[in-house]
Amino acid sequence: MEIRETVGAAVTLLGSVFIFLGGLGIVRMPDLFNRIQAGTKASTLGTILSLLGLAIMNEAWIWKLLVIIFFVLITNPISSNVISRAAHFRGTRMTNKTVADLLSDKNKKISEE
């Protein structure tokens, strides 16, 4: 009993570490796409892990927590995809470290034709 609750609390703590790293990433990264990479994914995993930890601690809540995990897992990639596509459409400036942007190259080729 005690052991199971401690394990659940530890998983929740691990999830909160990922949430913190997501916040750190969104502040440190130099441009929007890298912010999406570091921010939204880390906070997704963090949320899933902390909800799983609560599910381990309290087995009566497990189905409801699984529904929330399912929705987070489905909705989060869609929202980051929508924002990134809008930003690229808008011509958001990318960082100097960027190696290549094949999507802009293709769009330029189409508009020249």
Partner: peptide
């Protein structure tokens, strides 16, 4: 602390898309 860091980006964010993504991180957390 993570939500506070995201709020920092939300206030700072040079562009509307940066603010939108900071908002997303804040709500998911």
């Amino acid at each position: 602390l993570g939500i506070l860091l995201a709020l920092f980006r939300f206030i700072l964010g040079p562009d509307v898309t940066d603010r939108a993504i900071a908002f997303d991180v804040m709500t998911v957390s």
